[in-house]
Design a protein around this nucleic acid. Structure first.
Lengths: 196, 196
DNA sequence: GATTTTTACGCACGCACGTTCTTATTTTCA
DNA sequence: TGAAAATAAGAACGTGCGTGCGTAAAAATC
């Protein structure tokens, strides 16, 4: 790996944290440069524009999510075990104390939802991919006979998403220690409902 | 009502919209003044600081939510009818096409969740009040015999919250037309599960 | 209608933003 | 090792930010 690539990774690693706390707009080139002891222009030249930096952060977030949530889950047998594994890994992702501000997607979604531009387009793409993956995983549980035949996999994906978003909010905003229990209980009810 | 109060209301009305779209940080005094054809300093003098403006917007959001969601719901008989009415009014709140950026609370929650300061404190207060109200409403359904005796009202509040957050995201970010149906189905499942 | 109080403006300030150049330094590779 | 290429720094730009102050206009009060 060249020097440039290494620096770029170091920048993005920090940018990922800053964007989770302060949002993709709050993510500022000057502050980022200070924290990394780089010059503004030196940092800037790695991306060419702030928008590109934002896009790179979203891309990084997606690949980390895949790495930390989806890939481990795929080691579990398809169907319910894998679906449950996604849920548990996702909990770890949301509760990770190293990422202040909570799930970076929650930040980005609220920030970009009714705007225009490449960052939004990229985010929509990642979220659609995620929803598809969740639905597919739920559908596999149907196919394996773990869920009822008439289970609507996309509906299950919708509801799981809701559980995770609420977990994030209860934990980060309300500082509710019981949030994880609540999420687990909600998930249990979701699974139970669709179990034949 | 004095002239000053009228102007202040006019400012907040617009600020409410801007904050929903661009967030409480993206809410900017200069842009707000331009839209309202006021001078920056003239507008500023109504609040004394940007932070106070942000707090005023959160307060306005809460009172509007109470007015548009909770108060109408209280006309329904307590128990399940009222609980269902909260849900339906809340849908209207989230789907309101006059508010670009979707539910302003979704914005504010993501923005302020791991920060410090008065805006955050005020937001936490409003969200705790909301959660309490939801839980109380669910508890009334238990008391009236519409929900099972062992139903955990706060758990129901948690899950309802999740449905609404997901409705907001699917609608605003993913532009999914079926989001309302999904929300209704999730709600139906929630109610059904707790029905004796 | 005169006076006092309220409300709004104009201007300026210091600061941080994203961005663009030019220049110096470091890496890379023949 | 020396030439070429990649990387980082530095200084400067225009812009917009929140904020403070003195003053003019308007409204409220008597």
């Amino acid at each position: 790996m060249s020097k440039g690539e290494a620096t770029r990774e170091r920048i993005l690693d920090r940018a990922f944290l800053m964007a989770g706390r302060d949002g993709l707009d709050g993510l500022t080139i000057g502050a980022l440069a200070d924290e990394l002891k780089l010059s503004k222009s030196g940092l800037f030249s790695h991306f060419g524009s702030k928008e590109e930096l934002q896009v790179a952060v979203i891309d990084l977030a997606e690949s980390r999510f895949t790495e930390l949530v989806m890939l481990p889950a795929f080691k579990a047998p398809r169907g319910l075990p894998r679906f449950e594994r996604i849920f548990e890994q996702w909990i770890d992702w949301v509760m990770d104390t190293r990422t202040p501000g909570g799930c970076i997607f929650a930040q980005a979604i609220a920030e970009l939802d009714d705007r225009q531009g490449r960052p939004r387009d990229v985010l929509v793409q990642t979220q659609e991919t995620l929803v598809d993956a969740l639905a597919k995983s739920a559908q596999l549980a149907v196919d394996e006979g773990h869920f009822k035949k008439d289970t609507d996999a996309r509906q299950v994906a919708f509801e799981l998403h809701g559980i995770m978003m609420t977990l994030n909010m209860y934990t980060r905003l309300l500082k509710d220690r019981r949030a994880v229990d609540r999420a687990r209980q909600a998930f249990k009810r979701l699974v139970q409902f669709h179990t034949p």
